[in-house]
């Protein structure tokens, strides 16, 4: 948005030749690279999306890290630690991709901490039991992967490259969640109940992860045209439902939707109506954990300031000494 305002303030209409070259490159599925000319709105849209994605990775560490110290076996503890670590890594890849557009990570973090940029609302739900770790892996990561795989072909090069790396690394995330739930589902009665309860709570929020229906989605059409986005929200949501239904059956768990059934004619599953009022409420900040998540993030950042300052000061002293 900043870039757009500057353009407008300067009263500069972009060179039509540049616009045409850009449009042609995107239409031909070529990649846009950081120093190429790009429309201010494209840049702003990318920064917004990459920042939100990066923020989601690092806020998303919290609900799972909540169980690292309590994981019920050492094998599970190691898996969970590695997964949460990956999320920090993925946040880093995405922040560095966003930085290629001239926005520093500090700026983005400041906006997150000030509530000016969003992260995925799914992380505003609590992890109440161990089974929630499995449900996040299976459903939340599953939904995220459905969203992310097409982004590996996104028109902006650095974003697409970051996504290739992320998708490759995330392939174990969903599997570990599924395996975790399977162990619970096939375990004791109490474990099975724990797994079912987690799936009951995470199913609908996972469907909401694909964003509002296509006709209500603010940024969708333009993002599709720019090939920042390659499929519509509803299309991806349907794909996810179709994949998840047989997986739930194999788990021996049910999905909490009485209207869920196969539609022979469409060749897809029909499913019930999503409670979008809940989605908008959580997005507005009224979810169960919004304040907690952002509070912890802000605290970690503020309490870490002296550490970052110390290292910078050390570098300054010793950089001078060397020169």
């Amino acid at each position: 948005m900043v870039a757009m305002t500057q353009d407008a303030a300067a009263g500069q209409a972009p060179d039509p030749a540049l616009v045409a070259a850009f449009d042609a490159a995107v239409a031909a599925d070529e990649r846009v690279e950081p120093r190429d000319w790009m429309p201010a709105e494209y840049r702003a849209s990318l920064v917004r999306q990459m920042a939100q994605h990066a923020h989601s990775e690092i806020i998303g560490m919290q609900p799972e890290a909540n169980w690292i110290t309590r994981a019920p076996s050492l094998r599970r503890k190691a898996i969970l630690m590695a997964k949460v670590q990956d999320e920090a890594g993925h946040g880093l890849y995405l922040y560095s991709a966003a930085e290629t557009l001239g926005t520093s990570r500090d700026e983005l973090l400041d906006k997150l901490h000030a509530g000016k940029q969003k992260y995925s609302s799914i992380f505003n739900y609590p992890t109440l039991t161990w089974a929630d770790v499995g449900a996040i892996g299976w459903l939340v990561d599953g939904a995220a992967i459905t969203n992310q795989v097409p982004l590996c072909r996104c028109s902006y090069g650095p974003y697409a490259r970051a996504m290739v790396r992320i998708c490759k690394e995330e392939s174990f995330h969903q599997r570990q969640g599924y395996e975790l739930l399977l162990a619970l589902s096939q375990g004791t009665e109490a474990q099975h109940a724990m797994a079912q309860d987690a799936v009951d709570r995470w199913w609908w929020p996972s469907l909401m992860m694909f964003g509002p229906p296509d006709d209500e989605s603010a940024h969708s059409a333009q993002s599709m045209a720019w090939r920042i986005k390659r499929h519509s929200n509803d299309e991806l949501r349907q794909r996810f439902v179709d994949i998840a239904v047989p997986q739930a059956e194999a788990l021996g768990l049910t999905l909490p939707d009485p209207d869920l059934k196969w539609n022979e004619e469409r060749g897809h599953h029909d499913f019930g109506t999503i409670d979008w009022s809940e989605f908008w409420e959580v997005l507005k900040g009224n979810g169960p954990c919004n304040e907690q998540r952002i509070g912890q993030r802000r605290r970690a950042h503020e309490e870490g300031a002296w550490v970052r300052d110390a290292a910078a000061e050390y570098a300054r002293k010793h950089g001078e000494a060397k020169a």
Partner: peptide
């Protein structure tokens, strides 16, 4: 491979 932040070359 990508980029990252660090206070100095060693880190």
């Amino acid at each position: 491979a990508g980029s990252l932040h660090a206070p100095d070359a060693e880190m």
